[in-house]
Design a binder for these strands. Structure first.
Lengths: 194, 194
DNA sequence: GTCTATATAACGATAGAC
DNA sequence: GTCTATCGTTATATAGAC
């Protein structure tokens, strides 16, 4: 049980159980005792892998937000064409679908995540990323009204995914369908002059 | 300080402070001590008005869900026409906008609300209401794919509201604009045969 | 209605043996 | 790496005086 491979595996098992319980019962209502019990270890053992309870959820959140940051960086480096915008939406659903356990946990516990950025780091972890993402989906110099459609496209996809992902036979089809509608919605931002 | 009017007022002040702190810091991270301190009373005083901490948030949630239930009841009693569907969306934004403090608190703390329905009542308080609401927005016998558009319309409005409500000069205009897009989105459920 | 004082319980986290 | 044992803190909630 001393090989590093075993250690990584245990760490991953802790994360998996944590995601499950945090989603089911919420972050604050889930105690380290519960997580440890389900893994048949003691609380103290968890502290070998994570320095605090927050550190567990941080390790989960980190990866997800890093992907969004990468997407924003990529989008910024691209020309502002309709094709680019469609590709941004496509990559966004992909991130959502691929990390759907973390994604759901994150949105279920956004109060906890929000109050986690807490001291030293600034807050608004979600808004901080959604604002530039929306910005990439409108023409330069767009009005606030123009931002509504892409915003609703993103919010609609998130909601649609969380609502239907567990009752649909083929998640790939769901993604494709959501993306389709989102593209149509976000791209209808011309011809609104009377 | 004995008149019942004074009592109601105090109760309302407790609720107002609770909504504010629950939204700001989250339900679990907000202690009754904090709420009491901000009202310049002691913890014990709160127990004269509410029998538990959960009871405070329950009193907040109750009113909001009752309005949604009324909307579902009204929608069920109406003919399934495009006009009815548009009116359902209109009433939904109205509920969202009118009770926007509670609405935001609710979505920020959905983990807490979810784990509150807990024993004896069943869970899924949100899904329980969104499912019939979506049902009212599609033609009878619609496929799952047909439900995507109304679902995204609802989710998009919620997201758009929460994201922009605090940075817009006129919230009434925001509501109108969101509703407009949502109607267009939800009503495009014909002509998708190739 | 509001207070002081306290009961009771659980949590996150650490120390140190093995 | 995992354990036992425990520390220190804070929380919800109650009892009973005023």
């Amino acid at each position: 049980m001393n090989e590093p491979a075993r250690g990584r595996e245990t760490r991953a098992r802790i994360q998996a159980v944590a995601v499950e319980l945090f989603t089911e019962q919420g972050y604050e209502k889930t105690s380290l005792r519960e997580i440890a019990e389900r893994l048949d270890v003691t609380k103290a053992a968890l502290y070998y892998y994570f320095k605090s309870k927050e550190d567990i959820v941080a390790s989960l959140v980190e990866d997800y937000f890093a992907q969004i940051d990468d997407l924003i960086a990529w989008g910024t480096s691209q020309p502002a064409t309709p094709q680019t915008r469609a590709e941004i939406l496509r990559r966004y659903v992909a991130i959502m679908a691929e990390g759907h356990r973390a994604f759901r946990m994150l949105h279920q516990n956004q109060a906890a995540v929000h109050s986690m950025a807490g001291p030293k780091g600034r807050r608004e972890l979600f808004k901080e990323r959604l604002t530039p993402l929306i910005e990439l989906l409108v023409e330069p110099g767009a009005t606030l009204a123009d931002r509504l459609r892409p915003a609703m496209a993103l919010g609609g996809m998130s909601f649609g995914w969380m609502f239907f992902a567990d009752q649909v036979p083929d998640r790939g089809e769901l993604c494709a369908a959501l993306l389709d509608i989102a593209c149509e919605l976000a791209d209808a931002d011309r011809g609104d002059r009377p």
